[in-house]
Amino acid sequence: MTRRRRGPILLVLPTMVILVLVVIFPMIYSLTVSFRFYDLRVPRHPFVGFENYIRLFTDPRFHNALRVTGLLLLGELALQFPIGFGLALLLARKFWGKKVVQPILLIPMMITPVVVGYMGRLLFETRSGPINYFLNLMGLPGALWHTSANTALLTVILLDTWQWTPFMMGVLLAGLVSLPPEPYESAKVDGASSLQIFWYLTLPLLKPVIALVIIMRSLAILQTFDIIYVLTMGGPGTATETIGIYTYLIGFRYWDIGQASSAAWVLAIMLSIGVTIFLRMMGRERR
């Protein structure tokens, strides 16, 4: 091996050492814990095999967490994708003041999620919050929002939509702007209507970017934690208890670290499926 070959590996070494120590090692540790009865208040942690996983998959509360997370995923995508796409199409047009408007619309996704959750508490406040006030003004009844089991998940979805629709908008807009102009010119010459152009040109050309934003958002939604912690802590009851919140409560409220580890591993495996799809798409994008 010459010096030329060893140099690059040395450059990568510090990164790899750190990542092995902060990712691989803790995950292996967590895997071993997930096969033990590990209650922090009890000094001994006996090996129990798959019992934590069996308890997890037979726990109705975990089934509920899966259902809540699924609903959250569908609800958020159903709102964020169409709104984000619509805004991206608007911003792809030419209009006065675009240079100022565009960065303003991106602001929400930079704000600390805990702060967003707190904003939700202010805005959705049932008695004197501005949202119920506006609803009353339009002759509609106010809602109980995050304080009722019926509307709590919807409130979380709306708040997260405020924060993350800009992400959909921004990425889709970047995709729209980089589309090749030639097919559009010939379509116009052929007299295609704008609806036809959108359906037969824009959508198919944008398909890779659309798939990318949807998978990236999905991976993030499956981990939703911060906003819910501040807004409802999984309640009322278990109405907004996502997998993330469930794992936290099992581990750090009930101190059942063994079962929390098994839940964390199930979540990590679920996500790795999505991540594999994401990496495939990134790989294709670069070729």
Binding site: P26, S30, V33, L222, G244, G251, I257, A264, A268
Partner: peptide
């Protein structure tokens, strides 16, 4: 995309 909750338990 690594979930923080998964690493939080062993780190604790």
């Amino acid at each position: 995309f690594f979930p923080p909750i998964a690493a939080a338990v062993p780190f604790f």
